[in-house]
Amino acid sequence: MSKALRVGITGGIGSGKSAVTERLQSRGIEVVDADIVAREVVEAGSSALEKIAQHFGKEVISADGNLDRAALRRIVFSDPDQRLWLERLTHPLIGESIAQQLATAASSYAVLSSPLLLESSQRDFVDHIVVVDVPESVQISRTKARDNNSEELVRAIMAAQMSRDSRLAAADTVIDNSGALAELDQQVTALHEKLLRLSAAR
């Protein structure tokens, strides 16, 4: 028997990946969230966090000893060299943890949710790519409301991500999340049924 289908779910910032993955989790599907893994590898006391503090200074460490993600984000999204340094440190650690979690997933198919799925070697972990898509104006308004970020910062984050056209070109399935939640529910139901069929056919 071949291993379960591995599905990558991605989308630009503010596209609503988590709304899709939450609906799949409620159906018993195991989801590995790359954002959660990225937080775990830099937890207080980790060697990665120690290296980040040495490189960027104490201003990226909050009073409780955890990473001040907002402070770090401001630095790395205004300086590509600093972002590259951070990625070289964290990406191998994140990849290792993701591979381990996908290997032990026991559901009909397993999901990797990652904003950097298509920009990194993480795409090698998956067999089928789902892109959650919204217009860029929706990305900006949702992210500003959710994270209380300036439009300038949101646009800088979007500029650092793969372009919308490139993401859509790489997709095996596209979920349009610009409408009402009822429309999203219908699309996720259809996606789930499709993925069950693809997994059963392996």
Rank of each mutant, 00 (worst) to 15 (best):
V130F: 01
V131R: 01
V131F: 02
V131D: 01
V131C: 04
V131K: 02
V132S: 06
D133V: 10
D133E: 13
D133T: 13
D133S: 15
V134P: 13
V134M: 13
V134F: 13
P135M: 06
P135S: 08
E136P: 04
E136F: 00
E136I: 14
S137R: 12
S137I: 08
V138L: 15
V138K: 11
V138Q: 13
V138A: 13
V138R: 12
Q139C: 15
Q139A: 10
Q139K: 09
I140H: 07
I140S: 04
S141D: 09
S141P: 01
S141A: 14
S141Q: 14
S141W: 04
S141V: 13
R142Q: 04
R142P: 02
R142W: 03
R142F: 03
T143H: 07
T143D: 04
T143M: 06
T143F: 07
T143K: 05
T143G: 05
K144A: 10
K144E: 14
K144S: 03
A145G: 09
R146Q: 10
D147R: 03
D147V: 08
D147W: 08
N148S: 09
N148T: 00
N148V: 01
N149L: 15
N149D: 10
S150R: 05
E151I: 07
E151L: 04
E152C: 03
E152H: 12
E152F: 11
E152S: 13
L153G: 03
L153A: 09
L153I: 12
V154I: 14
V154W: 08
V154G: 07
R155E: 05
R155D: 01
R155G: 01
A156E: 12
A156R: 14
A156C: 02
I157N: 02
I157F: 04
I157C: 04
I157T: 05
M158E: 00
M158Y: 03
M158S: 02
M158D: 02
A159I: 03
A159K: 10
A160C: 08
Q161P: 06
M162A: 13
M162S: 12
M162R: 12
M162D: 00
S163V: 06
S163N: 02
S163K: 12
S163M: 04
S163H: 04
S163W: 01
R164G: 11
D165C: 01
S166V: 06
S166G: 00
R167N: 04
R167S: 09
L168V: 14
A169S: 15
A169Y: 10
A169F: 11
A169D: 14
A169I: 11
A169N: 13
A170T: 05
A170R: 14
A170S: 15
A171R: 05
A171L: 09
A171V: 09
D172G: 09
D172P: 08
D172Y: 05
D172I: 09
T173K: 01
V174R: 05
V174I: 15
